[in-house]
Amino acid sequence: MTLKYQGKTKDVYSLPNNQVLLKFKDDVTGENGVFDPGANTVGLTIDGAGKSGLKMTKHFFEVLAAKNVVTHYVSADIEDVSMIVKEATPFGKGLEVICRYRAVGSFFRRYGAYCTEGQPLDSFVEVTIKDDERADPTISDDALEMLGILSKEEYAVLKERTKQICQIIKDELATKNLELYDIKLEFGRDKATNEIILIDEISGGNMRVYKEGVYIAPLDLEKDFLK
């Protein structure tokens, strides 16, 4: 294997046949030692976070596969803390797609004059550009098209698939009395087919989940959800 890229929470290795291996790390995003799935810097290292994230990711990708949702997932090795996936090309330098069911985090910080914290939202989808230097700014479909990152037709596909995937995840969590407040996904184009597919991971580090109004930390979420 050849190291292709060192990310904040995963290292990426090249494999044959348009596949890559993702090696999960124990680093999580946050600020000042506090976990924050929306942060664009590594805030802390939590022992076991990589394996915990992979267990959740494997579970959700297999649930999506059973529902014929197209993703980059091929297989996972929990003990090796790694996952083999189809290679995908990002949109521009990378986009993140957030689906929000409650007004918390950066949404509430921006729009708090018009809502109360925790107020229900109707599967609100927003896209941010992966750009640490500019704090991952949000971007509209008009701007994405004008900058040649994503056409409006592709944006519509992205939005529809985000809502579909997030509803499946939300329903799955609800089976354990867990409520999804928001979640961050990533998409790319399958290198072999050019189809828009879900990439990256689906874990506690990408979502805010509450149980009876109490926030559940990522490692606790994995233990609670997969017990």
Rank of each mutant, 00 (worst) to 15 (best):
T2A: 12
L3Y: 03
K4Y: 08
G7T: 07
K8Q: 09
K8R: 11
T9G: 12
P16T: 06
N17C: 14
N18V: 06
L22G: 06
K23V: 09
F24H: 06
K25P: 15
T29D: 05
E31R: 15
E31V: 15
N32K: 15
N32C: 11
N32P: 06
N32V: 09
D36H: 03
G38L: 15
A39I: 08
T41L: 12
L44C: 13
L44Y: 07
I46A: 06
D47S: 13
G48M: 00
A49V: 10
S52M: 04
G53M: 04
K55F: 03
M56V: 08
K58G: 08
H59S: 01
H59C: 01
H59R: 04
F60A: 08
F60I: 11
F61N: 06
A65S: 13
T71Y: 00
A76V: 05
I78H: 04
E79C: 01
E79Q: 07
E79R: 01
D80L: 13
V81W: 02
S82G: 08
S82L: 05
M83T: 07
I84T: 15
K86S: 04
E87M: 11
A88L: 05
T89P: 07
P90G: 08
P90T: 13
G92R: 02
K93M: 11
K93G: 07
G94W: 01
C99K: 02
Y101P: 08
R102A: 14
A103C: 08
G105L: 03
S106A: 10
F108W: 10
R109M: 09
R110P: 06
Y114A: 12
G118Q: 09
D122M: 10
F124W: 02
V127E: 03
I129C: 11
K130C: 02
R134C: 05
R134K: 12
A135N: 13
D136N: 09
P137N: 03
I139G: 00
D142R: 07
A143I: 15
L147V: 07
G148Q: 01
I149P: 06
L150C: 13
S151K: 03
S151M: 06
K152N: 13
E154W: 01
E154K: 04
Y155S: 06
A156T: 14
K159C: 11
E160A: 15
R161E: 15
T162I: 00
T162E: 00
Q164W: 07
I165G: 04
I165E: 02
Q167A: 12
Q167Y: 07
I169Y: 09
K170Y: 04
D171N: 10
E172N: 12
E172L: 07
L173H: 05
L173M: 12
L178I: 06
Y181D: 13
D182R: 04
K184R: 10
L185K: 04
E186T: 05
G188T: 00
G188E: 01
R189E: 09
R189A: 10
R189N: 11
K191I: 12
A192K: 14
T193L: 04
T193E: 02
E195A: 12
I197P: 00
I199V: 13
D200L: 01
G204V: 08
N206M: 04
N206I: 03
N206K: 02
V209T: 02
K211F: 07
E212F: 11
G213P: 09
V214K: 15
V214S: 14
I216P: 05
I216F: 07
A217Y: 06
P218I: 03
L221Q: 03
L221N: 01
L221W: 00
E222I: 08
E222Q: 14
E222C: 14
K223H: 10
